[in-house]
Design a protein around this nucleic acid. Sequence first.
DNA 1: CTTACGGCCTGGGTGC
DNA 2: TGCACCCAGGCCGTAA
Length: 289
Amino acid sequence: MPELPEVETVVRGLKAVLPGKRITEIRFNKTDFIDNPADVAENLPGKRIAAVRRHGKFIVFDLIDGASRSTALLIHLGMTGQLITTPPEAPISPHTHIFFSLDNGRELRYTDIRRFGRVQFLPGGVDGSPLAELGLDALETNEKEFIERLRGRKARIKALLLDQRVLRGMGNIYTDESLWHARIHPARIAASLRDDELGTLYKAVQKVLKEAIRLKGSSVSDYVDSDGNRGEFQLHHRVYMRKGEKCFRCRTPIQRMIVAGRSSYFCPHCQRAPRTRAKKRPVERSKRL
DNA sequence: CTTACGGCCTGGGTGC
DNA sequence: TGCACCCAGGCCGTAA
């Protein structure tokens, strides 16, 4: 599942080979995950890739044409999206849906089993695009901004970390891993966290994301980088998908519960549950008094 | 405005 | 062998 570290790894791989190359031809298989396929088909051929960069979990291709007009192509990998550069004669993996021919004789392919990914051509560049709605980059923000963004919020901390309008880049894996490192229960209300706890969380997020990038991401389902290689951070997960296994700190079995509509893994000993509001007293109970 | 939640998209894995 | 069902992340509509 591509989150910030996986997208960063893919982008680093693409940065090494794509800038300066021209897209000579584009071919599709299925197109239902593309915002406006005709737009993409019409506008991409002939464009030169000026830059490739990551914006949260989005990949941005900055494009220029002969008249130096700036446009962009936005790709979100969803859950199972892959962007791989390959020789055109290489065997085609199942579920490959976009083929970008490049002027150096190579091919860039988009493969996506579930097609939860999204592709969009931005004729006016990134202004006013979905990118404008996103919050602070989880990796580029500082501790002060991070704390201010979360302080006083009434939502559960996990929901806020996952909300791309608050913080961009975090997904289910890195949220759970960061909360475990910071010893914060996923269902805690953000407003109940002291500034020092938010500071600890900030440091945990940075540590987890940086280590995951160093190991080229987590290959839990079918994630691979732009050269088709798997990451290794899944071997370092402390809680994610470890229900029933022992906590690395205290040996307590890891639990799983749904928080913010997502499977959430945590250590019930290291990450204390928030005080639950007292249950409404049943009517029968008052009769007994 | 903020928050919570359910449903939808798709197809691989699982369990019977 | 087949098949029903669960689940993943983002997004959207609805309700409080």
